[in-house]
Nucleic acid binder design. Sequence first.
DNA 1: TCAATTCTTGCAGACTCTGCAATCTCATGT
DNA 2: ACATGAGATTGCAGAGTCTGCAAGAATTGA
Lengths: 230, 230
Amino acid sequence: MTSPLAAAPEPERAPEQVPIGDDPAALGLRERKRRATRRSIEFAVLELTRDHGLDQVTVDDISRVADISPRTFFNYFPSKDAALVGDSPFMLDGASAERFAQAKPGGDVLADLFALVRELSLGVTVDLSLHQLRLKVMRDYPELFAIKVVSMRSLETVLTEVVERRLAADARATGAVEPSVGAWHSRALLIALVSLSTMRHAWGRWAESDDPDSLPSKLDESYRELRGLL
Amino acid sequence: MTSPLAAAPEPERAPEQVPIGDDPAALGLRERKRRATRRSIEFAVLELTRDHGLDQVTVDDISRVADISPRTFFNYFPSKDAALVGDSPFMLDGASAERFAQAKPGGDVLADLFALVRELSLGVTVDLSLHQLRLKVMRDYPELFAIKVVSMRSLETVLTEVVERRLAADARATGAVEPSVGAWHSRALLIALVSLSTMRHAWGRWAESDDPDSLPSKLDESYRELRGLL
DNA sequence: TCAATTCTTGCAGACTCTGCAATCTCATGT
DNA sequence: ACATGAGATTGCAGAGTCTGCAAGAATTGA
């Protein structure tokens, strides 16, 4: 990268929509600035990628456009890729996880897990114009998709763990003794992986289509389709 | 990395087992050297990682141990990670794919796809001592796992595409018209993803256990477990 | 043995990312 | 309002990855 990529103006960035009923200045100035900077970096990297191509964009360019020092970039994101793909839209919170793990035995584990995941996706607040831009870029560069998947890998571990606990609780309750301990783990892993596939499927269809259909509804569709498969 | 990590001797590298009935010197000298170099690099990076830790290993170290120049390293692998995780054990070959895509309509697509994947895994010739070492290292550094997954991402595209063709052929044959074209794609993607989950599951269990049980048999187990789930 | 092809290597250079220390900005209590 | 501390930004130096290029070495096939 030698071209300086002039510190361009920023046209199409819609002002961030603040969720209704969300305290506007409840957060201190510090926090507000932080968020603004983060957003600005995310826009910068996406706009540059869209306009100049993925491998033409350097951290220096991004910093120039986002109006921060290159060093500061790395205070916000651990890598260039991280800024490109953003946070995972699925974050497991402890309470729901606990509820799932200790649900009454005998239920359909896959269905319950799915409900859990669906719940997660409800909590997502997307910055619309940022999200649109990100989807556009990801459509242009499918390899980013893989990075996104990696960023969701931690979820695999978490889900497996929670499913395993659920299976153990179930077995303890019904008194049915599974063949071996390893069998639970194997089962839990498979269940987690299948769920992740479904999330991945829903996410993919969400990303592909431009309709603003919410992620949860895509998830429902995917789940139905999964059930139809089997 | 400043420490030179002495160009150590190589103890535990078992000589590569040549599959029976495989011409020993049917390949020219050139090709044989190339393979030896590749193998030597793979061993080097794995041994160094095992002995000194993942982020302590540099390309310079690897090259020193493998006895090549750092520049040559990149003639063999596009990145350090690539050398670490090795090739994907699943490579789709055109002929089997074609057979699958044009199988007689009405069959169980998921089952057929699974058989296809199973077939792929049969073709894998593993260099045993290299494989053992790699599994050990991957167990120590689960993040490598994610990289491995990424390296299999291309398979997702290929599988989806082939499933889509199969679904199209099926529909054409039975005359049943699906609601929309997009529906096929969605369905194909889901099927591919679920299959990949199963492969991933089988692979994970293969990697976790030390038993030399072949990958195909693990695949069978995983498939059975999947069916039991639904 | 000659010539074509394919590999290896060194070198220069762009780029990513980290630790450190100086400096600056926001938050908080008095 | 002001002092003080916690948190952020920045520049700099340095290690490490990876690429293009061109010269030189090895293998192949005739």
